[in-house]
Simulated scan of single mutants.
Amino acid sequence: MTTTYAALLRGINVGGNKKVPMAELRTLLQRLGHSGVGTYLQSGNAVFSSDRGDEESLAAELADAVEKHFGFTVDVLVRDHAYLRAVREACPFPAAELEAKQLHVTYFSAPVDAGRFASVDPAAFRPEEFRLGDRVLYLFAPDGLGRSKLAEALARPRLLKGVIATTRNWNTVVKLEELTGD
């Protein structure tokens, strides 16, 4: 059975570092035997269909191919359409009422529990808020991610130890769910 996935590459094409042209990423995915390959924006979002593997093995395969082709390591998460739809539908914030720059989703490589973020005092960051979901963290940042003190606190290395984490704004969350749909 063929499944459509989104690949989320962490930290590419940011500030001139780890440059991955999207045309080359599409070619790389096609060479790996995937079909329906496309990319979204320049920030490490790709979609593809595959009839083999699972999310973890597909992510490892793509990360290995990126390292061999470009000469640097990149963390990769792969998620299928059903998961992306569930993340969108489970958003605890009123997404339709917010600007896309105010709402972000951080995807994790594994489940995380609330205890991991116990040292972060939510009251100290109001009106910013976060909620955990299934391998995701939803972040409401009224002034945007770039000005978010809460995002900075949540991204501390000790809080993210042992997991890959990559963040997308709400427009990208919605678009990736749409691109992987039927």
Rank of each mutant, 00 (worst) to 15 (best):
E128D: 12
L103R: 09
A124H: 11
D121K: 07
G115V: 08
D113F: 09
S119K: 15
Q102L: 00
D113S: 13
A118C: 08
V120L: 00
Y107F: 15
A123I: 05
A118I: 10
D113A: 06
A124I: 00
P122N: 02
P111I: 04
P122F: 01
A110N: 11
V112L: 09
S119I: 14
A123G: 10
P127L: 04
P111W: 02
E128L: 06
A124P: 07
P111F: 07
A110T: 13
S119P: 14
R116F: 05
Q102M: 03
A123C: 04
R116E: 11
S109D: 10
Q102N: 06
G115K: 09
G115R: 10
S119F: 08
E128N: 02
K101N: 06
A123Q: 14
L103V: 13
A124M: 01
R116A: 05
V120D: 03
G115M: 13
V112Q: 09
A110R: 15
F125C: 07
F125N: 06
S119D: 15
S119H: 12
S119L: 14
S119Q: 15
E129T: 04
P127A: 10
P127V: 13
P127K: 05
D113T: 15
E99A: 14
A114C: 06
A114Q: 13
A124F: 02
R126L: 05
H104E: 07
G115A: 07
A118M: 12
P127M: 03
A114G: 08
V105M: 05
V112S: 06
G115P: 13
F108H: 11
L103P: 12
E129R: 14
R126W: 00
V120N: 00
Q102W: 02
V112D: 09
P127N: 02
P111V: 13
A100I: 01
F125D: 02
R116I: 06
G115E: 14
R126V: 05
P111A: 11
A100Q: 06
E128S: 04
S119N: 14
F117E: 12
A124S: 12
A124C: 02
F108T: 03
A118E: 15
V112T: 14
E129N: 03
E99G: 13
G115C: 11
L103W: 11
D121Q: 13
V120W: 00
A118P: 09
S119A: 15
F125I: 08
D121T: 04
T106P: 05
V105I: 12
E99Q: 14
A100F: 04
A123V: 10
E129K: 10
F125V: 05
R116D: 03
F125R: 01
F108V: 04
K101C: 07
S109L: 13
V120K: 00
F125L: 12
